[in-house]
Simulated assay, not measured.
Amino acid sequence: MIRFVAAVLTLVASATTSVAFDTKATSAFVLDQTTGTVLMSKEADTPLPPASMSKLMTLYMAFEAIRRGKSDGGLDLNEELPVSEHAQSYGGSSMFLRSGESVTVEDLIRGIIVLSGNDACVVIAEALSPDGTEYGFARLMTQRAQQLGMNNSTFTNSNGWPQPGHLMSMRDLATLSDRLITDFPEFYPLFAETEFEFDNRVPSNRLNRNPLLNMNIGADGLKTGHTEEAGYGLTGSAKQGDRRVIFVISGLDSVAGRAQESQAIVNWAFRQFALRPLAKAGQQFAQADVWMGSQPSVGLVAAEDISVLMPALASNEIAGEVIYTGPVSAPIAEGDQLAEFVFTLDGLPETRLPLVADRTIERGGFMSRMSTAALILFTKIIQGPEGQT
Rank of each mutant, 00 (worst) to 15 (best):
A314P: 00
E350V: 13
V308N: 03
E317M: 07
A357T: 13
A314H: 02
A339P: 10
E304F: 00
I318R: 09
G326N: 03
A302K: 01
L345R: 14
A333F: 05
P349T: 07
T325A: 13
L309R: 09
P349L: 03
A339M: 06
A333N: 07
S307W: 00
G320E: 02
E317K: 11
P354T: 07
L338R: 05
P311T: 02
Q337V: 11
G347M: 04
L348Y: 04
Y324L: 08
P311M: 08
D336H: 09
F341K: 05
T344P: 00
G326L: 09
P331K: 07
E334H: 09
E317T: 13
S329M: 15
P311V: 05
P311H: 07
R352M: 11
E304K: 11
E321Q: 14
I361K: 11
P311S: 05
E350L: 12
E350Y: 02
V308F: 04
A330F: 04
M310Y: 09
T344R: 01
A333Y: 01
Y324H: 10
P349S: 08
E334K: 13
I361A: 00
A314Q: 02
A333C: 03
F343T: 10
T344F: 00
P311G: 11
L338G: 01
T325S: 06
A312P: 11
D358T: 14
D358V: 13
D336N: 15
T360C: 10
G320K: 09
G347F: 00
F341P: 00
Q337D: 06
E321I: 06
A330K: 12
E321C: 10
L353C: 14
I332H: 09
S307F: 03
D346L: 15
S307K: 09
F341L: 13
V308A: 00
L313I: 14
Y324T: 02
Q337K: 14
E350R: 14
L338A: 01
P354K: 04
E362W: 02
V342G: 01
E340S: 12
V322F: 03
S315Y: 05
Y324M: 03
A303M: 05
V328Q: 08
I332V: 15
E304Y: 02
